[in-house]
Simulated assay, not measured.
Amino acid sequence: MSPASDTRQSIIDAVLRIIGQDGIAAVTNRRIAKEAGVSLGSVTYHFATQHELLRESLLHFVAEETRHFTALADECSDEHFDIGQAAEVVAQVAGGNAFDSRHIAPFELYVQAGRDERLRAAAAECFAAYDLLAARILTQLGVPDPERLAGVAVALVFGQQLRRLATGAPAEDLVDTLLILTKFAPTQTS
């Protein structure tokens, strides 16, 4: 990377950390500069507006999430994939026991996308990657009509993650919820 793209990436990383720690309202050019270890002028040089800064941060987050979830989906294509492996993938998605600012930032960004239609396409791209992973897992578990149910599974994961964020519930609650769901889902017949 060039020094300019290193600086730009440092700014984006700082924005995501700030959002995760204190929300979008805390994103100011001065705070970004301090957090990124760059001059105030660098922030305004690389990003002319707050909207551009938030959009680029969301796009960066989406690209990382899409890459991560697509790789996880590819791992779920083993013909011997079972409920135990599904639980491991879900635990990985849940992020273990630490629910840090990296886990909080997506909620803030998606709420912002709900307020700003210019960010919705980027959010939709990320949800498509989530749906792909859910559909692969459901397919491997023999759940009928996995593409139709993928969005429901993703919504359940997000709801459980939001609950976890708000209450401090352990990641195992998410895994347990999804295992219960698959237990009651009818299985496909050959």
Rank of each mutant, 00 (worst) to 15 (best):
E64M: 14
R17T: 11
L58Y: 08
R67P: 04
A33E: 04
D82I: 12
T49P: 07
S77I: 12
A63K: 13
A63V: 04
R30A: 04
A14E: 09
R17H: 03
V89L: 10
G23K: 00
A71E: 13
H68E: 01
L40C: 09
H80C: 10
L54C: 08
T28I: 04
G20T: 12
V15T: 01
N29Y: 13
S39V: 03
E65L: 11
L40D: 14
A87Q: 07
I83L: 15
V27W: 07
L16F: 05
I32W: 00
S42Y: 09
F61K: 10
T66Y: 00
R31T: 00
A86G: 10
F47Q: 01
G84Y: 14
A94Y: 14
A86R: 09
L40T: 12
C76H: 04
V38D: 02
E88H: 14
V90A: 11
L58G: 07
A73W: 03
I24T: 14
E56N: 05
A73S: 09
G84Q: 12
S57F: 02
R31D: 00
I19Y: 01
I32V: 15
A87I: 13
V62H: 01
F47N: 06
L40V: 11
L58I: 06
Q85D: 11
E75A: 15
I24K: 01
D13V: 02
G84I: 07
T66A: 10
H46Q: 06
L59A: 14
T70Q: 00
A48R: 14
D74G: 13
E79P: 11
A48P: 05
A87L: 06
R30D: 04
Q50S: 09
A63L: 07
G95S: 11
I19L: 03
T28D: 00
G37K: 11
E64V: 14
Q92C: 02
A94R: 05
I24C: 01
V90F: 11
A87G: 13
V43P: 03
F61Q: 14
E56A: 13
L59Y: 09
A33K: 07
H46G: 02
F61I: 02
A73M: 06
K34W: 00
E52I: 07
V27A: 13
A14T: 09
E52K: 12
E75H: 13
E79A: 14
E65G: 03
D82A: 06
H80K: 15
A87D: 06
L58E: 03
D78P: 07
I19C: 05
T28F: 00
A25Y: 00
N29E: 07
A87H: 08
A36W: 00
L59P: 05
G41W: 10
Q92F: 03
D78L: 07
E35A: 05
V93I: 15
D13E: 12
R30K: 01
L16D: 03
Q50A: 00
E35P: 02
S57D: 05
H80P: 02
A71T: 15
I24N: 05
L53Y: 12
H51I: 03
A14G: 02
L16C: 07
V43F: 10
G37D: 08
F69M: 03
D22M: 01
L54A: 09
V62C: 12
F81N: 09
R17K: 15
F47W: 07
A26F: 05
G84N: 14
A86T: 12
R31K: 05
T70G: 04
R17V: 09
E64Y: 10
A25H: 06
S42M: 15
L58M: 14
